[in-house]
Amino acid sequence: MRIRLGDLVDRLGGQLIGDADIEVEGIAPLDAAGASQITFLSNPKFRAQAAATRAAALILSPADDAAIGPSLAGARLVTANPYAYFARSAQLFVALYAEPAIPGIHPSACVHPDAEVDASAIVGPNATIEAKAVVGPGARVDAGSFVGRGATVGEGTHLHANVSFHAGCEIGARGIIHSGAVIGADGFGFAREGGVYIKIPQTGRVVIGDDVEIGANTTIDRGALADTIIGNGVKLDNLIQIGHNCVIGDHTAMAGCVGVAGSAKIGKHCTFGGAAMVLGHLTIVDNVHVSSGSMVSRSILEVGQYTGFYPLAKNADWEKSAVIVRNLGTMREKIRELEKIIKTLTEKK
């Protein structure tokens, strides 16, 4: 279960400096890698540690190779993005050691006669596939997962154990949904009359693109009328809540415990740190980065990094303080002008 460095480079690219016939069996951190493993250097501050590594080969950038390459005992894999190269190498080793998946439907699974399950798909124990649902080629629905009526699971997509994928929802190819995720539950929609709440039927869907990963216990609500849309390549961590009718643009990533209220529209290539919050009906353009714990309370229409922390207070007090904070720049200039006047008067006196 080893791979030649030459074969690794043939698959992943990069420049190999050293013996192409060296065989490696895995990847490990700089300080733990042994003679049968490769490792990587993605941060120049660890150059000294990299120079002392016992790994068979080191993945590193051209700049790091110029700095420490000649002093290394092992081979080098030079690439513009060592961290991405490490990720692809790790995928390769995982695939190398993975148990072969055997297509088929477990006898304890409940698959409706009107469901369409590809012959190359896997349906695990006690899984449920309802009528009109489609499970595509190479897809995998693990133990206890639920695929609702008319839902579609795309080619090569993997629903881990105990995922709820509700009626009419769709996910594209090569997706990963981790255990406990709920896709397509009702959105939080109610009309208020006479002090009571009247439920608004949630008749939209959740439509998810290709290459999306959704973390454990994350929830994405179905749309009220239109659909909730998750674009291609989106990465959602654990314990995230996406409200109904939200649109998340391609290749946006969110860390754990992010909350996005209904009808928010978020652009492509955005990032959200852990526990960031987005209020409903807001628009966030492409390439916006929101820091951990920040509250987005207004639309963001300009690219950049945004951070917002503010202590909890009674609403009236908070609004007064917010007005003062917003005017601090003007107040500072006025204070400077007053200081100049006082200084002038004092000198004259």
Score class of each variant (00 low, 15 high):
Ala121Cys: 08
Leu279Ala: 07
Ile171Arg: 04
Gly138Tyr: 01
Gly154Leu: 10
Val258Leu: 08
Ala52Asn: 09
Leu16Tyr: 13
His178Tyr: 15
Leu60Cys: 14
Thr271Asn: 02
Leu60Ala: 13
His251Phe: 12
Glu23Gly: 09
Asp118Asn: 05
Leu12Gln: 08
Gly180Gln: 05
Val182Arg: 02
Ile248Val: 12
Pro125Val: 08
Gly209Asn: 03
Gly26His: 12
Ala191Tyr: 10
Ile208Leu: 04
Phe46Asp: 08
Thr128His: 04
Arg326Val: 02
Val123Ile: 15
Ala75Gly: 09
Asn232His: 15
Gly6Val: 00
Leu338Asp: 02
Gly148Val: 00
Pro311Val: 09
Cys257Gln: 14
Gly195His: 13
Phe40Arg: 09
Asn238Phe: 14
Glu170Ile: 07
Lys348Met: 07
Glu23Asn: 07
Ile200Lys: 04
Val288Asp: 04
Val78Asp: 03
Lys268Phe: 03
Gln49Tyr: 11
His112Leu: 00
Thr157Trp: 12
Gly280Trp: 03
Thr152Ser: 09
Ala48Gly: 12
Leu58Pro: 07
Gly194Thr: 12
Ala119Thr: 10
Asp64Ala: 01
Gly231Glu: 02
Ile38Gly: 06
Gly138Cys: 00
Ala151Met: 07
Trp318Asn: 09
Pro113Cys: 03
Ile183Phe: 10
Gln15Tyr: 01
Lys343Ser: 13
Ala109Lys: 03
Leu301Glu: 15
Leu279Phe: 13
His281Lys: 04
Thr157Leu: 07
Val141Thr: 09
Leu312Phe: 14
Leu92Tyr: 14
Asp317Ser: 12
Ala313His: 13
Val325Ile: 06
Ile38Asn: 04
Asp210Asn: 14
Ala119His: 08
Glu337Leu: 11
Ser89Leu: 02
Ala63Trp: 01
Lys340Leu: 05
Ser108Ala: 04
Ser321Arg: 10
His289Pro: 05
Tyr83Cys: 00
Val141Gln: 09
Leu77Thr: 00
Lys235Phe: 15
Val234Pro: 11
Ala167Lys: 05
Ala32Pro: 11
Val147Trp: 11
Val285Thr: 14
Asp227Met: 07
Thr203Lys: 01
Glu193Arg: 07
Cys110Met: 04
Arg47Thr: 05
Pro107Asn: 02
Ser42Trp: 07
Cys169Gln: 10
